[in-house]
Every structure is written in C-alpha cells, then in structure tokens.
Computed example of a mutant assay.
Amino acid sequence: MVSYKEVQASNALINDVTAPRVAVFVGGTSGIGKFTIRALVATGASVRIYLVGRKSSEERMHAFIQELHAINPKAEVIWTEGEVALLAETKRICEAIKSKESRVDLLFLTAGYAPFGTRTETAEGLEIAQSLEYYSRMLFILHLLPLLSEAEAPRVVSVLGGGLERATIDLDDLDLKKPGNFGGVKAQMQYVAMNTTTLEKLANDNPNVTFIHSWPGSVNTGNVRRGSDPNSMWAWFVWLILEPLIGLLAFSDEESGQRHLFQSTSAAFGGRGVPWKGKLGINSLEKPADGLFLVNYKCDCTPNAKVMPLLREKALGKIWDHTQEVLRPYL
C-alpha cells in the first residue's frame, strides 16, 4: 500500500513544471472526478482543465469553477457541455478541444454508474451505462491520442474496476442485448473486462502514453443508485443498507481526490511524471515498465495474473473488432 502520507508528499511536488498543464475531465461534475479536480487545482499549479458534463450540471458547476478560481487564480477551468452517453456528442467535444489545444497531458474518465436498473438504450442504440463506461471513454481516448502524444508525460486514467476482471466475459453478446443477459454484477464485470482489454491494447500501441485502469474502492459518490427505479427493491436496499455501509467504509472525498491525483501524476506508474523514489508499479504484463497499470484504492498495482492471459488470448480480438465497428462512424 502507498500510504496517504506518501501520496500527499508526492502531490506536494506538483508545480508549474510537473503539473499536467492541459487536462480533460469527463465525469468531473461529481464524485471522484470532482474530488480530483479540486486536488489538482489546490496544488497552486498553472493548469487548464476542460470540465465536461451535462447541461443539467452547468449552473452547479459554474459555482464550483468560481470556488476553484478562488483557491488558485492560476487555474483555468473551462466548462464544456455535452451528453457523453452519445458518441456523436463525444466526437463533437473532442473536435472542439482539438481545435483549441496542441497537447493534452491528462485525460481523466469517470462518467458512468452501476448498471443495476432496467436496460435503457441511448438514441444511438447503446445501453447507457455501457456507452458511458466503455464506448464513450474509448472514443475520447482515440480522438485525443494525437494530442496526448505531444505531451511530455501523458496519462489516461479510467476509473472503474481495474484488477477486478473476470474471465467469464460474454464474447457472444458483448453488448448484453439477449433477453435476460443484462444487469447487475454481470454487466458491470463485462464493462470492466472490456475496459481493461482495450486499454491494454492501446497502451501497447502507444508506449509513450501511460494508461491506468483504477479501482477506487468505496467512495460515496451516489452513483450506485443512478439508473435504478426509485420505487424498486434495489433502490430501497441501496438507501437503507448499501449507501450507509459505503459511507461507513469509504475514503473521505479529500483522500480519494488526493489518491487519484497521485495516480494521475506520479512516476510510480510508468516512470514518467512527478519524481518517485519508492518501488515502481508493475503493469498488466507484470513488468516494471510503461503500459497499462491496474491500480486499486490503495494505489497498489494488481495485475490480475490469472485472468489477463485468458482475456488476451480469447477476448482481445473480438472486443477490439466489435469496438471498432461501433466507434467507426464517430472517428
């Protein structure tokens, strides 16, 4: 475990030289994304942050942006409105960023929620949680890779469930459209495995970019009840039991933000970033090198050595081909 004091000491080294000068936060209007933005701004470094969120969050986020400016006048936070569950919107946002920036240092992806409700599709025919947690995230990465490649220590962080992959992914129904195939833990684990498998391919193809798939552990973001029927048994279970339990066991908002800022900046992962004198992290190939890092809530690397070889051998090709087919109209 990387102690909280070690995390804080590393983050204290973030300055105008070591900070991610241009960062894109997708899902930063609440939860871990918001906590991490606050932690980054509080370093006092000169940064420009694109904060991507839905129209319904705009008024609340303007107040947050004013708060951030008071904390650090050198930080520029740009509200970027868009419904990223729609891939056409994701493309539009990426094109807008590419028209303004020549580089991106950090792409931080947290949009999504636990798919424990009924299956609901976007206007583009994708299940909403899967679009948010997988397709939209991969589309952001693919669009912004040229700008990430121009940075000195570029990093992509996808917060979902790195290290929790299972080999039971349904390769015959990747989008879980068959009757009775969607929902609950199965859907979440499907999206986790798809994230990791594709992120590892992207990391192998782009060794100049550090990729992290983070499992944040217990953080009280409220997303566990999003998408569920408020009158369902599940919603009552969440309200009466699960959320109080999460609140009891969860990291504080501040510690979660600090730990994810560490993951976003420290040379502990891939050797690029804020100097790190501790033990280097091990990537998903079980090597102390660049690539994809599966990082848990303790900031430990968890390569999931039993499952990853099976995903590479049996799932990678099908997932990548299917992903290209879905994303092709939006690239």
Rank of each mutant, 00 (worst) to 15 (best):
M1E: 01
V2G: 01
S3T: 13
V7A: 06
Q8I: 11
A9S: 11
A9G: 02
A9M: 08
A12R: 12
L13N: 04
L13I: 06
D16M: 09
V17C: 05
T18Q: 07
T18V: 10
P20R: 02
F25E: 02
V26R: 01
G31L: 10
G33F: 05
G33W: 04
G33N: 02
F35H: 12
F35L: 06
I37G: 03
A39T: 09
V41K: 05
A42S: 13
T43C: 10
T43K: 09
T43A: 07
A45H: 08
V47A: 07
L51R: 05
V52A: 04
G53W: 00
G53R: 04
S56W: 02
S57N: 15
M61V: 14
Q66T: 15
E67A: 11
P73C: 11
G82K: 04
E83M: 08
V84C: 10
I93M: 02
I97A: 01
K98M: 07
R103M: 03
R103D: 00
V104L: 06
Y113C: 02
A114H: 10
A114I: 11
G117C: 07
T120G: 00
T122N: 02
G125V: 12
A129C: 07
Y134C: 07
Y134I: 08
R137P: 00
M138V: 14
L144Y: 03
L145K: 09
L147C: 06
E150C: 12
V157Q: 03
S158Y: 08
G162Y: 07
G163C: 09
E165L: 12
R166H: 11
R166S: 14
T168R: 09
T168P: 00
N181R: 12
V185S: 08
A187K: 06
Q188W: 12
M189A: 14
Y191R: 07
N195R: 03
T197R: 04
L202S: 07
N204A: 15
D205Y: 01
D205E: 13
W215D: 00
W215V: 01
P216M: 09
G217R: 14
V219M: 10
N223L: 15
N223M: 15
V224D: 06
G227H: 10
G227Y: 13
G227N: 09
S228M: 14
D229P: 03
S232E: 07
W239Y: 14
L240D: 00
L240T: 13
I241N: 02
E243I: 15
P244N: 08
L245S: 13
L245R: 14
L248K: 13
L248R: 13
L249Q: 11
F251W: 14
E255F: 14
L261A: 07
G273K: 03
V274H: 04
K277W: 05
K279D: 02
E286T: 14
E286Y: 09
A289R: 00
A289S: 12
C299D: 08
C299I: 06
N304D: 03
A305T: 15
A305L: 08
K306A: 10
E313D: 11
K314R: 09
L316F: 01
I319E: 02
W320H: 13
W320G: 08
D321W: 08
D321A: 15
H322I: 08
Y330P: 00
L331G: 01
